[in-house]
Design a protein around this nucleic acid. Sequence first.
DNA 1: ATATCGATTATCT
DNA 2: GATAATCGATATG
Length: 225
Amino acid sequence: MVTPWKSGASAPRKASKKNPGFSPSPLPRSFFARDPRHVARDLLGKLLLRGNPPRLAARIVEVEAYLGENDPAAHSAAGKTARNSVLFGPPGYAYVYFIYGNHYCLNVSCEPEGKAGGILFRALEPLHGIKQMARERNLEIHTPRDLIRLTSGPGRLAQAFGVTRLRDNGCDLTSPHSGLWLAEDRFATPSIKVTRRIGIRKAADHPLRYLIADNPFVSGPKSFT
DNA sequence: ATATCGATTATCT
DNA sequence: GATAATCGATATG
């Protein structure tokens, strides 16, 4: 497959005769046991995968960092509750929440156990399993532009990957056996931009949104620089 | 291209 | 009872 824009992207991979033994390396737990700002930057260009071997694959192109108890915009700001307990647990686990009565959003816990912190996945570039993503989204793909509505936005990407709180909250994103996981990709070091976070009232001015510059799957208004 | 609005429910005050 | 880390549709420039 060829991407119509020039991103230096590697080709999508799945196990096949042409590409036997496709087996991306899961990100280790130590990757997530750090400040969310560093994790967020380093997650750009990595892969989100569903299944093993992967039935769905997509490249991470936009994320936001949430800093824990010192970040008024973070769900963990007011302390540990039943809803946000994953954020206070060990790093590398999925925190899934339901919002606006309509949408699920996917995060990964950061920082060592006991300290809250997380990354919100805001946009992906779909690589493999596009038909299934379109089914999950109830969309038909006619042109390359239609692909953007598959995974551009936190609610959209969660729906495309079939992410729900019941199914995925607390799942280990460092394990291929967990169903939903994160992996390395060989990707030319992306050109990264940092902006304010989208859709929040509190602490709205902090530069904690990280994105791959010029990637067409990045979400949000273009005015967000 | 930007603005506004309604949907719909888990969670917290 | 109010709010929310959103989306899709509609209206307007």
